[in-house]
Amino acid sequence: MTVTDQDFQLFIYALKNSSKYDFSQYSEKSLKRRLAKVLADNRLNLTSLINRMKNDTNFVEKIVKEITVNTTELFRDPQVWQAIRYAILPKLKNNSVINIWHAGCSTGQEVYSMLILLNELDLLDRTKVYATDLNSDVLENARQGLYKYRFNIGYLDNFDKVIKENPYNFEEYNDVPYEKYFSIDKSNDLIKMSNSLKEKPIFKKHDLVTEDNTLYVKFDIILCRNVIIYFNYELQNRVFDLFHKNLYDNGCLILGLHETILGTYSVKFQKKGHAYYKN
């Protein structure tokens, strides 16, 4: 099913009018494709979709959940996590408190990656980890810390690269067992995060597009990876403004591997390796 430009605008308008969600500045190409998929999956045409949205807030929530993208991995892009381990976190080792915000955390794999790394560096006790997403279903999944095993065997390779190996010293090998942090239940095809990790983060529903910082603290590190690719250029700048305001001096923002700060905010951050430090 193809979605015309006019259909797309009608949907955005209807969503804005029947909810607090504003997708008008989302990256159009990707969102259009998602909308086509939602229509096909629900066997609806646009008119019936919009009519149902008007009277059924649960249905609106369901559509918003289906239309957003939730791809994530444990230690996704190991080179970024190696940088967090060897370049970014060490600068914070004398802090009495470290605040970290995972903005757009999806199902939480990167939240657990951070918790594991913090524990390995003996920083977990003094760190507060906040994780937010627009989609309450993925947040619930993140709270549960349950992931498919077979589909995600790559997690273990990533774990080895970041936790066991040292890219700066090939002779070093820390034989940290997976069981220290998660159990693998092959018969039920599950990876289960340990309870001690699960009780640590504060998960909260939050919309980066329409809301201010509702966590009421500032941050040493904000991770927002492969989220802003779904926003247009103008909206990206709004989000950079939100991040800039809510970072401590010397705090840093970590983006996805192919995300960058273009435009006016590029001068307000300084890129060092994989991190953008607040100027």
Binding site: S27, E28, K29, S30, R33, R34, V69, T71, N226, I229, Y230, Y233, H258, E259
Partner: peptide
């Protein structure tokens, strides 16, 4: 449009 590239992990 406007000559910009957009990436996606869909």
């Amino acid at each position: 449009l406007a000559n910009r590239i957009a990436l996606s992990t869909e």
